[in-house]
Amino acid sequence: MTLDSIAIEGGFQNPVFDAQTIFRAVMQAMAEPGTIHKGIALAKPPAPLTPEAAAVALALCDQDTPIWLDPALAGDEAVRAWLAFHTGAPLANTPADAHFILAADPEHLIGLENFAQGSQEYPDRSATLVLQVNDLSGGEELVLDGPGIENEARLAPRPMPRHFTRQWAQNHARFPRGIDLILVSREGLAALPRSTRITSQEA
């Protein structure tokens, strides 16, 4: 297959309704941090971009939202062409200019503070990170607390960015500034908004 045909195939089957399905999954995940939402593999992008991450990108990104890709994705011409064709989103010049970050290799992701944090007046002008993880339940368990969580929630994604708990504590400390995380794996998606605290991590 040529690069061109890879680029134009694999989008949503039903753009209007698929986008709504994915958005609702992200919305519920963001509203109830730690919950896992299934049935989101609605796109067929070229690897290493996963169907789940691609679906989130299709649902939320467009000409108005510069994207930054981690080296694992940025190095793949087919991925770049596919995203450009299906979302129209420009690639950000620097990590700090991006509205959305897509990362296929979260373990080696640059520090969270490199992405747009928003300002104290406009904390919404911040980045949303979409991390492709292997799974959401096999890693070290994170115990979560904060808005959207009745008592406590648990999530065990892997792999995660280095020193994630410490980085997340710093991110939360910047509230209302800070980044929000969407984690995608074959199990589905989960989210950690900046309002979520990680209260403990089992060794």
Binding site: P15, V16, A19, Q20, F23, V26, M27, M30, A31, A59, L60, C61, D62, Q63, D64, T65, H99, Y122, P123, D124, S126, T128, P147, G148, F175, P176, D180, P193, R194, S195
Partner: peptide, 24 residues
Amino acid sequence: DEQTKRMIRRAILKAIAIPGYQVP
């Protein structure tokens, strides 16, 4: 239209992440 929905959806996600903050 879908572009408008995406714009509003992004605002809703930010609003949820920053409870009580008014997203333009």
